[in-house]
């Protein structure tokens, strides 16, 4: 069975890039545009991995991550933070929120894909 990736991202171009990047792979994608949609999607279909945009409307990606990690049933899903806040100390913030990986924007799709493969549970 192909692995499922939940893409949480409010920027349409970034969703398109990730979609095109994964088009040639075996992964199945679900998309969410904000934190609430993300939590609903996680509860409904339990993805194998989450690409978490951090700057989201209403609830930021770190808060969404904390909630997913606080729920025993979803705690083990790996979450990769994708953030344009590339300031000093951002990676520590991501780790502290419970993210398993951290990719600063602008990223290379090739490198993001490598990160996904590295974090994907077997």
């Amino acid at each position: 069975m192909s692995k499922r990736i939940l893409v949480v991202e409010d920027q349409p171009d970034n969703r398109q890039i990730i979609r095109d990047m994964l088009a040639g792979t075996d992964y199945e994608i679900t998309e969410a545009e904000d934190g609430e949609q993300a939590l609903a999607a996680v509860a409904k279909q339990r993805p194998d991995l989450i690409l978490m945009g951090i700057q989201l409307p209403i609830m930021d990606g770190y808060e969404v991550t904390r909630r997913i990690k606080a729920t025993p049933a979803t705690r083990s899903i790996p979450i990769i933070a994708v953030t344009s806040h590339a300031l000093d100390g951002e990676e520590q913030t991501a780790r502290a929120a419970g993210c398993d990986g951290y990719v600063p924007e602008p990223y290379s799709p090739r490198q993001l894909l490598a990160k996904i493969e590295q974090c994907m549970p077997q």
């Binding site: 970034n14 890039i17 344009s84 924007e105 602008p106």
Partner: peptide, 9 residues
Amino acid sequence: RTPLNAILG
């Protein structure tokens, strides 16, 4: 960075 990410991506 956000638009630049789209351009480079």
